[in-house]
């Protein structure tokens, strides 16, 4: 009986350790950038939450809109007040999966190409997206990196005619999020 207990326990503990390696962070980085003749817009966010399950390839990102920082205070106010309506839509999220999970060895240092597919929600509008980026495994840490463009009108963000020339319609988003193994 005792030995059976021991075996079960050892197995269970192993199972939870081996199959369940999760990675998590609360201070990942996401920047965005857009260029138009009148106004270059850039913003940085250093408080991105992200989690990755190495066993299933599930990956989520959660971004608090009000924690984007801009070089101009007025721009930040307009971003929240006029464009993103952050009181109404406080977060942007991505929920998806790494579809080429078998190509990535989470136990070996290296940079792997990764393709991610899932739902991107910005300004309350959800779109299916598929993007490729890299996943770097470095001494137990996992660094996800991806650069992609979105069209603001896809997410129901209106640019009024008065400022149409000043603000670009595409925004380049850079995701650079380092996740730590969950203890």
């Amino acid at each position: 009986m005792k030995t059976l207990f021991k075996i079960i326990i050892v197995l269970l503990m192993l199972s939870s350790n081996v199959f369940a390696q999760k990675y998590i962070t609360k201070n990942g980085k996401i920047d965005f950038y857009s260029d138009a003749p009148m106004e270059k817009i850039e913003a940085k966010n250093n408080q991105v939450k992200a989690a990755l399950d190495a066993a299933t390839g599930d990956i989520v990102f959660q971004v608090l809109i009000t924690s984007f920082e801009f070089p101009k205070a007025l721009m930040q106010e307009h971003f929240n007040e006029n464009y993103m309506e952050s009181p109404k839509f406080p977060n942007s999220t991505f929920k998806g999966k790494i579809i080429n999970l078998k190509d990535i060895n989470f136990t070996k240092n290296g940079k792997y190409n990764a393709t991610i597919e899932g739902d991107l929600t910005i300004h309350g509008v959800t779109k299916k997206v598929k993007q490729s980026g890299t996943i770097e495994v470095k001494d137990g840490k996992v660094i996800t990196y991806c650069k992609f463009n979105i069209l603001v009108k896809d997410y129901g963000i209106n640019i009024p005619n008065a400022v149409a020339g000043k603000i670009a319609e595409t925004v380049q988003i850079t995701v650079d999020v380092a996740l730590d193994p969950k203890k």
Binding site: F5, I9, L12, S15, A20, I59
Partner: peptide, 29 residues
């Protein structure tokens, strides 16, 4: 001694339950 094993078993089960939790966003607390 047996008590300890039982306790460990419960703990392990809790961990296992964690492993299969559905939504990753739960990880954010």
């Amino acid at each position: 001694m047996k008590k300890i094993y039982v306790l460990l078993l419960v703990f392990s089960l809790v961990f296992v339950k964690n492993t299969f939790s559905q939504d990753l966003t739960d990880e954010f607390g």
